[in-house]
Design a protein around this nucleic acid. Sequence first.
DNA 1: ATGAAAGCGCTAACAG
DNA 2: CTGTTAGCGCTTTCAT
Lengths: 345, 345
Amino acid sequence: MSEKSRPPSRHRPATLKDVARELGLSVATVSRALAKPELLRPATAARVHEVVHRLGYHPNVAAQNLKRGNTGIIYVVVPSLSPFFSEVFRGAERAALERGYSIVMGHTDRRPDRESEYFNKVSAGQGDGILLVSTAEAVTAVTHKRKPPPTVAVMDPVVNYDFPSVRIDHAKGAMLAINHLTALGHRQIAHITGPAGSPAAIHRRDGYLAAISAAGIAGGEESCVPGEFTVASGETAMASLLARPKRPTAIFCANDEIAIGAIRAIKAAGLRVPEDISVMGFDDQRIAALYDPPLTTIHVPIVDLGYTAMVKLARILAGEPYEKDLVLNTYLVQRSTTGRPPKKA
Amino acid sequence: MSEKSRPPSRHRPATLKDVARELGLSVATVSRALAKPELLRPATAARVHEVVHRLGYHPNVAAQNLKRGNTGIIYVVVPSLSPFFSEVFRGAERAALERGYSIVMGHTDRRPDRESEYFNKVSAGQGDGILLVSTAEAVTAVTHKRKPPPTVAVMDPVVNYDFPSVRIDHAKGAMLAINHLTALGHRQIAHITGPAGSPAAIHRRDGYLAAISAAGIAGGEESCVPGEFTVASGETAMASLLARPKRPTAIFCANDEIAIGAIRAIKAAGLRVPEDISVMGFDDQRIAALYDPPLTTIHVPIVDLGYTAMVKLARILAGEPYEKDLVLNTYLVQRSTTGRPPKKA
DNA sequence: ATGAAAGCGCTAACAG
DNA sequence: CTGTTAGCGCTTTCAT
């Protein structure tokens, strides 16, 4: 048996060459059949695909990367590993896998220097691009440097730098929430905010204030209590709200975790949700539907945010056209934590 | 200016060739200086390193992978994205990055078919190896197949298959916990377990039973209440324990999350920790030190588990010798949730 | 519509 | 101790 005609040894993955030999075609043709089938006679493309399938051929990503001069690595930079960001990551991961990218998670713990690290890595050819999730700060990494690497901002736009983004309209979501509550008859609606530095928190608060004022009801600055996107902060904030002389009949929370904290505090005070107080969250995280009682909240397409952002980044890297600023849709999900306000005692 | 002597264009990452040209050496020598410096004259190696540093040279991973016939991808397969697994992931990530691997996270949601997926991927040349974290089930993926891909089991050994592993001695940790409690004078020690299917939960429970019986005190099967490695299950289990006629003076929880749930339930019942009841966790997760009161727990080197496992997998892949079964050390961390039992009322 | 050939950056024989 | 050389698998001109 001659050396060159030897079949692939037992467990070596099939290569283009294997497919080509099997078909009596050149590797170039097979390559094209996979990348640009329109350049081939349909019949040829079909034959190629049949054999590709039969041999279980998968392109060798390392070879593709080498040829194309890239790394195939995308950094997904998140502030922390909360359930919310895990979902975003999941979406990004799926889109990445579909396109042959592998993604590396980077947590910054909200420290700007840890952000710069990833920018530097990519600038040094250690990666192809960055998905910057909920990270308003990237300024340090960017302002004093030259052209930054391909980056897509997810959730919040980056302060001082105009990266392409995939986000939602926080203010609109907040208005959806307030409108739901006013429609139920609430006139005393408080808001527990997210952290002061978060654009998402700020915009949700702005939406709350705008909707309150549009409805011409009480509330405003003085009805906002600062929170932190955590259950604990929701409990604390709610406790302070309960201690007020004029107790609100409904609470709009800047996210689901805060809402859960608020509900805990309300229960701890011997009150019921929603009979005594209505509570709304924001995000529609996994826990929202599972919690008891299930949370009325503003649905945010969390996984999709990650998926869409990765798709956009892939387009950018491929030099394909893309929408600069994509705003995904939010909508109200009514579950069991909102109802009509209690009759006046 | 001749074509061949053109310096690297503005933003192309430096290559071996660049370094070699700069030094008047061959690329082979530079490559060796990096991989096997002992083969070179020390002076040469030093000169190479100087230039490598000055030019900011980083090896092109794609080229290395292509040459070596691997992918550089390791799958870290975890049941879920809880904080615990995130920590393991972090450790694995660090070790991977140090060695030029990139790691892709795979969550199985405890579904065996999702596990097999990753095994198949690696078998098909889509990855180099697998870190299987706390996943007792991998059986389906493995038993009926031929030789499985390089895999290291982390935390729990895999049922029915003898993968190299990095783990801890759960039973020993549990004994440490019980000995601490008995030393404080406790004689009524209950245990809230983890889920029935988890080897970790089973071994921790075994350790509890063994230590209880060794101490010759009350408790045993009937002092075990089933839990789930979650805060909520800890609350529920603790509530049932509080309702018992003979209330325990100390609770050993199968992990920190359960312990937090237990503490919540105790507080909700108007009792104090540790004055009325002592509570111990297991794992020493990040939250343990931050919680109020800070948790007495069994320290598990979570990040290290991931790190060590990845190091071992890298050794396996490199054909270097490795320890088949590595058991990392655990120890007691005394914080503020354990104390002497209350004086008899 | 298809083939031949060059070369991406690196490693590893093999020579000296 | 160091240089020369031959690919790894793929994409992409350039021919035909």
